[in-house]
Amino acid sequence: MAFQEEHELHKRRFGRNLGLGIVLALFVALVFGLTIVKVGGERPQPAPAGAPAATEAGK
């Protein structure tokens, strides 16, 4: 049993909260995805075979 009468305002407010929740969830997913792309892009690549190794003397 509901404690108080459900008003049309509550429905409007629920719709707004639900919309905001979905937007925030998508935003979090997007930031996570961007982080993976950005961090993944900066992963050091192994030197190709035969390439001279970088040493202090090579500077």
């Binding site: 049309e8 305002l9 409007r12 719709g15 707004r16 919309g19 905001l20």
Partner: peptide, 12 residues
């Protein structure tokens, strides 16, 4: 409640 200007998601 009746006079509330509370907007819906679509209004934003």
């Amino acid at each position: 409640f009746e006079n509330s200007p509370e907007a819906e998601f679509g209004d934003y």
